[in-house]
Design a binder for these strands. Sequence first.
DNA 1: GATCATAGTCGTCTGCTTGACGATAAACAC
DNA 2: GTGTTTATCGTCAAGCAGACGACTATGATC
Lengths: 252, 252
Amino acid sequence: MPYDPSAFPPFAVTVDLVVLTVRRHSLCALAVRRGEPPFQGRWALPGGFVRADEDLAQAAARELAEETGLRAHDPAVPVQDNGAHLEQLATYGDPKRDPRMRVVSVAHLALAPDLPAPRAGGDASNVRWAPVEELLQRGGYGRDGEPVAPLAFDHAQILSDGVERARSKIEYSSLATAFCPPEFTVGELRRVYEAVWGVALDPRNFHRKVTGTPGFLVPTGGTTTRQGGRPAQLFRAGGATLLNPPMLRPEV
Amino acid sequence: MPYDPSAFPPFAVTVDLVVLTVRRHSLCALAVRRGEPPFQGRWALPGGFVRADEDLAQAAARELAEETGLRAHDPAVPVQDNGAHLEQLATYGDPKRDPRMRVVSVAHLALAPDLPAPRAGGDASNVRWAPVEELLQRGGYGRDGEPVAPLAFDHAQILSDGVERARSKIEYSSLATAFCPPEFTVGELRRVYEAVWGVALDPRNFHRKVTGTPGFLVPTGGTTTRQGGRPAQLFRAGGATLLNPPMLRPEV
DNA sequence: GATCATAGTCGTCTGCTTGACGATAAACAC
DNA sequence: GTGTTTATCGTCAAGCAGACGACTATGATC
C-alpha cells in the first residue's frame, strides 16, 4: 500500500551529542567548531543526520565513534571497559531552531573516562574538551579574557539539560563509574562526584557509603598510589546499577 | 542560502501520548482503536503528525486536547487546575517501527485526574481508559477471557517506558498531585501512590510524610467525607515540586 | 439510639543512615 | 626523621522510616 508523502510535512532528523568527561577536576564537554554556515566558526555540539536505515541509538553511537573513537556500550552490559555510556537525552524540535529547514534533533548523552585528546575528523583545532561552565556562559568572557560566543543553535540548552541529567543520575545510579577508567580508587570516584556536582564531599563518609553499598564496587585486589599518599585499593564497577539509598547531593 | 533537500533523508515526525490516570484504584492509560491500516482494529496510543509550523510540545498539547479535551499545563505553573501535566518522554525511531515509511515518534507523558469519559473524535467505542497491565500483557487474555491483541507499532514499549517514568517520578516530585482533583485529601493522594506503584502504603506513615514535607500540601480549610469514614482535611498542591527526601517506594 | 465499619489523625519506639569529625596508616618529598 | 598527602576505620548525635497502638469522627445497620 503506497503512502502519500504529501500527507505529512518532511523533517530532517539529526542526533546531537552531549559527551561529558572529567578532566583536571572539572566537568568538560566535547565541542566542535562549525566549518560552515549557519553559525560558521561558532562552537557546537557534535552531531549529524540520522541515515535512512539507521536506528537513533545507532546514529548516536556512530557519531560518537567518529568524533572520539569511543565505542558505545551495550546498555545491557555493565560499565567496565573503555566504552562510553550512551543514552538518549531529549528531543528538540522548535520550528526555528535551524534557520535552514525543519530539523528535529534527538540529543544523546555520553559519559566517558578522561581521554587523551579528541582526534576529530582530522583537524584537532576544531574539536576540544571545554569546561561546561565555560560553554554555558553564553556571550560572556573566557578565563583568558577572550570573548566567548554562545554555542550554536539551541546547543546551550541541550548541554544544560545533559549536564543536569548527569548530575541527577549519579545520585541514584552507578553511572559515575562511567567517568572512571576500568579500575579506579574510591578517591578517584569521589573526585568525579565532586567535579560533576561542583561540591566538596567528606572523604570518610563517601568511603563508607560506596564501600558499604552491596554490589556497587568490587575490589580487584590491586592498589595504586597514582594519586599520591597512602596506597589505595583498586575497584571495578560492580553489577549494581541502582544505588539504593541514593548518594545525597549536599545542599548548596 | 538554499539547502539541498536530497542531502538528508526525509522523515515523518509524530507525537504519541501516554496519558495516564487513576480510576477505581488502578492505573489506566488512554487507548484508541485504529481505524485504518496498518494495525487496523488494534488498540494504540493516541498521536499524530507534527505540523510544519508547530513545536513538539505544542503538537503534544494539541493531540491531548483533541483526544481528551484537557488543556496542557504550562510547566512553569504549579499543578492545580484541571489541566494535565505534560512532559516529553522519549523518542522512538527504529527504521522498521512503521511499515509504511520512516517515522520518528516523540512520545510524551501526560498525567490527568480521573476524567468522566474520553470524548474522542466522536466515536466513544474507539477510545477508552484501560488498565495498563491489561494493555501491556501482549497477546494474552483479558479479564473476561477475550483475547487481547498487543498494542500497535512499538506502543507497548512506549507505554511501558511512560509508566516506569511516572512510577519513578512520583518518588521525588509532587507529580502524584497531577492525578488528583484540585482539592484532595491525604487518603486520596495515598491511593494514587498505591495505584501507580501497585503496593499498599501505611496510612499513618504516609500521612506523616506528606503533611510533614514543607510546601508539599497546603490545607484549604475545608473537609470532605466523600471517601466515607471520618471527615478528612482538603489540601491543594503546594509550590514545592521536588520532594526531598523522596517518598520511598517499598521493596517488592 | 447503640453498635459497627470505615477512614483519618496523632503518637511512640526502634533501627538505620547520615553528617561531622577524631584518629590512625602508608606512601612520598625533603 | 619530619612533614605532607591521601586512605581508611571509628564514634557520636540527629533525623527519618517502618511497625504499630490509640483515639476520633463520620455514615450504615440493627
